[in-house]
Simulated scan of single mutants.
Amino acid sequence: MSSSDPTVQPVPSSVVERVDAADVTLSNPKRAVISIGSNLGNRLETLQGAVDALEDTPGLRVKAVSPVYETEPWGVESGTQPSYFNAVVLVKTTLPPDSLLERGHAIEEAFERVRDERWGPRTLDVDIVAYQDVVSDDPALTLPHPRAHERAFVLVPWYDVDPEAEVPGHGPVAELLAGLSLESVAPRADLELRLPE
C-alpha cells in the first residue's frame, strides 16, 4: 500500500509515537514520564540527543515524544535568560526510579549541564515527572515531580502525548491545565523531535 493511498492516515506530525505489538525486549516494564528542556546552545539538537540517549539506555524504550514548545524560564525575572525548548517523553522501563534518575543525571552531564544556580540556564534538564502511579516524598526523588502539577510547560506537552494522563495525587492533566495560564507556552510547529530508529 503506497503512502499516497487515501486510506492511509499519516501519523500527526505533532506527536511521534511508537506502537509495538509487544515489548519483547522488556519484562514487566513500568510507565514513566520524562520532561526535557534546554535554553543554552543548540536547543533542538540537545533535546534530540536526550531522546536518543534515553532510547540507548538498557531496560528502557521511548514510546512517544511530544511536540516542541518554546517557553519562558521558570522562577526567574523575564528577559534574564534565553527561552527554553521543552518536550515530554513517554517511556517504558524496567529500571527502578532511582536508577532512572541516575541515568537522567548522566545524560545531563553528557551535555555539560552545570548545576551552580537554582533555576539557572542550562544546556539540558531531564526530570522524571511521574513513574507509574508511585507517590513518594523521598527528598532524593519526589514522585510525582513536586511542581509538575503547576507547570504548564510540563503539562501541555504531556497532554499532547497522553490526553488521559493523571498526575498521581493531583488529578487529570486536562483539569490541571484548565487552571493554568498558557501564555508562556508557545508551540513550535516548525520543530520536531523524532523517535530513534
Rank of each mutant, 00 (worst) to 15 (best):
M1F: 13
M1N: 13
S3V: 14
S3K: 13
D5W: 12
V8W: 14
V8I: 14
V8T: 10
Q9N: 13
P10R: 12
P10D: 13
P12N: 07
V16C: 12
E17M: 10
E17W: 08
R18T: 09
V19S: 13
D20Y: 02
D20R: 05
A21K: 03
A22Q: 02
V24L: 04
L26G: 00
N28R: 12
K30I: 12
A32I: 14
I36M: 14
E45T: 11
Q48G: 11
G49M: 08
A50F: 10
A50G: 05
V51Q: 03
A53Y: 04
L54R: 05
L54D: 05
E55G: 09
D56F: 07
P58F: 07
P58Y: 00
L60F: 07
S66E: 04
Y69V: 03
E70M: 08
T71R: 00
P73V: 00
G75T: 09
E77Q: 11
S78A: 15
S78F: 06
S78V: 15
G79A: 09
T80K: 12
P82R: 13
P82D: 15
S83Q: 13
S83G: 10
F85R: 08
N86D: 01
A87W: 02
A87R: 00
V88N: 06
V88C: 03
V89L: 10
K92P: 02
L95G: 01
L100H: 02
L100M: 04
L100G: 04
L100F: 06
R103Q: 15
E108R: 03
E109K: 14
E109F: 06
A110K: 09
R113W: 05
R113I: 03
R115L: 01
E117W: 04
W119K: 07
G120A: 05
P121I: 00
R122L: 03
R122Q: 07
D125W: 10
D127K: 11
D127L: 15
I128F: 09
I128G: 09
D133M: 11
V134I: 15
D138M: 11
P139F: 13
L143M: 12
L143H: 09
H145A: 11
A148F: 05
E150K: 12
A152G: 05
A152Q: 01
V154G: 07
L155V: 06
L155M: 07
V156W: 01
V156N: 00
W158K: 02
D160R: 03
D162F: 00
P163M: 01
A165D: 03
V167N: 03
P168N: 04
G171V: 11
V173I: 06
V173P: 03
A174V: 08
A174C: 06
E175G: 09
G179M: 11
L180Q: 10
V185M: 01
A186M: 12
D190I: 09
L193N: 05
L195W: 07
E197I: 08
E197T: 11
